[in-house]
Each structure stands twice: as C-alpha cells, then as structure tokens.
Design a protein around this nucleic acid. Structure first.
Length: 463
DNA sequence: CGGCGAGTTGCAGCGTACAT
DNA sequence: ATGTACGCTGCAACTCGCCG
C-alpha cells in the first residue's frame, strides 16, 4: 500500500536497507565498516529498492485475476472496472489533468493490466469445490503434491519397475514431459500406441502446456485405460488439474474438460502423475531419443496463447529487470566498494550478483571441496573469503586505513605493510597457489592458508 | 468549490561519533 | 584516513480544517 510509483518512502527504504545490511553482515561475517552493497552481493541479498519494485510488480499482475465484480475494480478506470459499479471516487471519475497527478497502487495496477494478455477466468466452474476432477474422480487420479489425494513419490529403483509394467500394458499411455521439450512416448512393442507432442522451446509456460497437450494426445489413442505422466516440474503437477485462476489456466481447463468425459466413461480409467526429478528422469526410457526425434518433427495444433504475455511471464520479467538493475549498479566501483576484489568464474566471466541459492559467492564457497572430494565449506571460510574480497579484514592495511592504534601494520614475514595484495601474491608465509583471478582460486588459496585472513588471536566468531 | 493558513511529513545536507 | 549511524536543521510537498 505504501510502495508505488511516486510514493515518498525513502525513509522507510532507508530503515529497511539498514536492517538488511545487518542481516548481510551477519551472513557474511564482514565488518561493520564494510560497504553495504558489496556485503549484500556476497550474501545474495537483493537490495531493498529492487526487492520492493519486484514485489510490487508481481503483485500488480494479480489484478487481472480479480473477479469482474471485485470491490477493488470499483475504484479503477473505465477499462478495468469490469462489472463492478464505479465508485464516486474511482480513477474513472477524475479529469485528465487530475489523473496525471494522482498516484497510488491502483494506478500502478491499471498500468500493468494492458501489458498482460493472458485470459484468466477468476472462478471457472471446473474449479468449484465438488466439481473439480480431483474431487469427483478421487479414486481414479493419483497425483503428487496435492492435498487429499494419494501422493506418489517415485523412487529411483521403482521407476524401472513401473516402466516395465507400463510397457507390458497395451492399454497404458506414458506421457513423458521434459523441461524444454515434451514428449509423449509410445505405449510399447506389442501394441505401439504412438503419440508425440512438442511445443516451442524456451517458452515460460511450456511445462503446463506440454502436460496438457500430452494428456490430450494420450486421450486420442484407442482403448486407453491408464495414463501415466512423468514430469520434473512440481508446479505443473500442482496446476494441471487445478482450474482456479493461475497462469496457464487455459491449459488446465482444456485438460480437465477432456479428462472429465474419459474418467466418467469408465470407472476403471485411471490417470497418475509422477514427480520425477531430473537426475532420475529419462535414463530408463530407451525410446526417449526416438520419441524425441518424432516429437521434433511434429507441429502441435494445441499451442494455445503462444506469444501472449502471461502472468508468469510478467513475473519473470519483473524478476529479471530487478536483477538487471542490481547487476548494472554492481558494475560501478563506487557502488560495490572501491576495494571490492573483482573475480571471475570458472567460465571466465566476471562474477555478478544473484539471489539464487544464496548468491554467486555463497554457491562457489559451498561447492569447495578438498582432494578427497569432501566439502571444506565452513562459516569461517566464507567469512574469511568475504573479508578478503571486501578488503575489510584483520590485516595491517585495514588497521592502517582505519587508524587502529593497538594493532600491527606489518606482516609477520617482516614486510612493513600487510596488505591483501601482499598476502595473496608475495608473502613467504603462505603456500601456493598464488594466482588468484577467479573465485575458486581464492577459495583454494584459503583452503591451503586458512589463517591468511583470519583473526590471529580471536578464534570465536567475527562480525 | 477553491483559497488560505497551520500543522505534518519526507528528505537532503551537514556535522559528529565510532569502529575489529 | 574510510564507511556508516545518527541527530539537527531547513525546505518542499502534502493534509486538514476553516471560510467565503
């Protein structure tokens, strides 16, 4: 309510930023003198302004899922009020000049609405309690991740047994859905019921459309009384038989309508959806490559709404633009800190911040292993790494910069100033390797020299 | 409805204190 | 000699009530 275009909220953002900074220091073990932005990048914390922008954008997209008579619609402009009676203080009642001046969350919402072209039915009959497929045909549906239905968690070894059973059953259709390209695999030898589907690659909503198409294709086969679906996307499992207002809803409705008559026609017809994480996905499907090629050669008619801006796509864009804004800012030395040690990745690119899995630096630190392949990650190692990168560490050059009177400037090796450069590149007290251009090399250096950026006489915690 | 003044809020700028 | 927290001050924008 308080975050929208033109809102005066710098004070609040400042307070939240200072709070986030404390969290960042806590995560990284950096000093309180360390520059805020550098610390946040290391900790993988999206800065508050970008975070709020992202949340506001994503929330605004939900306006399109409101019912036509929702009270909020009474307050907006003529285009989006639906069937709600316009309130006397609605945006529609303002003069053009007033509209330019008025700011608020609802104004932002109405600016987002024309960008989203995905049709959403707020309360479709297929989503009503009692009419939902999972309510009506509970015994015939097996699906993971959904409440009130038997959960199937397929195990690595079980998958092979399942597949043997399915292939032996001439009336079973196996729908295998891959993240990038969906494939409807053939039934099997004795009675090859072959169907395949492929949807344009790289599309945001691809999994749901793929599962939906797969189901529709399977239903086209003759004498099918069992459909087994394998997918590695848990959101598709949650959504495929759920017709309530969500992105890709039209695929759910299409699949549910088609399944309804099939399930009704014979109580022995069953459909099961299995969650198969990527690591145990297709190794047991010898026909996979064959089906894949077949699938690639087919044009699929059911690509409903392709190229449209969906809610999910819009949300992804909001995420991407927030990340881009952060990355752009991060490139400036005055933002991340003048002493921030720019390091590369294994792929030779420069490390850029992200919020995924604790951020780029955290990910690399977690992956660090010793010769035996065991993880060497520890909080102390990560803290030393962060302090080294920020050049705010318990070393001589830091004591010099911040005018500590009780601490030595010189290195134990005799050099007059113990700087980061000295420790990493020249100091005789530390072991090889001394080439540190990438993050993994820095971690390697810390692995061999755990005392390099650590406190000499304070073993218990920092920050 | 619009103008006016009092009061409130947000914010930039500045100076000072402080730190592992 | 560096980065941040925090308090103070003055300005601008806004809100609210009153009045014609």
């Amino acid at each position: 309510m308080w975050y929208y275009n033109g809102a005066r909220n710098k004070g609040i953002i400042k307070m939240l930023t200072s709070m986030q900074r404390k969290a960042g220091l806590w995560i990284t073990g950096a000093f309180r003198t360390s520059p805020t932005s550098g610390v946040k990048a290391l900790a993988g914390l999206l800065p508050i302004p970008h975070l709020l922008k992202r949340m506001a954008d994503r929330a605004a997209a939900r306006f399109v899922t409101l019912t036509k008579t929702h009270p909020l619609r009474a307050l907006v402009t003529e285009e989006y009020h639906g069937k709600a009676l316009l309130h006397r203080i609605s945006l529609a009642c303002l003069t053009p000049r007033q509209r330019e001046k008025v700011k608020g969350p609802l104004v932002d919402n109405t600016l987002v609405c024309p960008q989203i072209s995905e049709p959403i039915a707020p309360v479709p009959p297929q989503a009503q309690p009692g009419l939902r497929l999972i309510n009506r045909f509970k015994e015939q549906i097996g699906i993971s991740n959904v409440d009130n239905v038997p959960v199937i968690d397929i195990r690595h070894v079980e998958l092979r047994d399942y597949l043997i059973d399915w292939f032996a059953n001439p009336n079973a259709a196996i729908v295998a859905v891959d993240a990038s390209q969906p494939v409807v695999a053939p039934g099997q030898p004795g009675r090859a019921a072959t169907a395949a589907a492929v949807i344009q690659r790289g599309r945001a909503r691809i999994q749901l459309s793929a599962v939906s198409t797969g189901i529709l294709q399977a239903l086209l086969l003759d004498d099918i009384n069992e459909i087994d679906i394998l997918t590695d996307l848990s959101t598709a499992i949650d959504r495929i038989l759920d017709c309530s207002a969500h992105s890709g809803q039209q695929y759910s409705i299409a699949a549910c309508d088609a399944l309804k008559s099939w399930l009704e026609s014979n109580p022995n017809n069953i459909i099961r959806i299995y969650y198969t994480p990527s690591d145990r996905r297709w190794g047991y499907l010898p026909i996979h490559a064959e089906a894949h090629e077949l699938a690639c050669g087919l044009q699929v008619p059911g690509n409903v709404g392709g190229g449209k801006m969906t809610i999910d796509k819009f949300k992804k864009q909001a995420d991407a633009s927030a990340l881009k804004a952060w990355t752009n800012q991060f490139e400036s030395p005055s933002y991340r800190g003048h002493n921030f040690l720019a390091l590369g990745t294994l792929d030779a690119g420069e490390l850029i911040p992200t919020t995924v899995k604790g951020g780029s630096w955290m990910q690399s630190a977690k992956e660090a292993i010793d010769q035996g392949g065991n993880s060497i990650y520890s909080n102390a190692l990560f803290a030393c790494m962060c302090q080294a990168i920020l050049n705010h560490a318990p070393i001589g050059s830091y004591y010099e910069r911040f005018n500590f009177t009780d601490e030595p400037r010189s290195c134990s090796c005799g050099t007059s100033l113990e700087s980061r450069d000295h420790i990493i590149k020249r100091c005789m007290l530390y072991k090889e390797p001394r080439v540190v251009r990438r993050l993994d090399q820095l971690i390697n250096f810390l692995k061999w020299n755990p005392t390099a950026f650590a406190f000499k006489n304070a073993p218990t915690g920092v920050g």
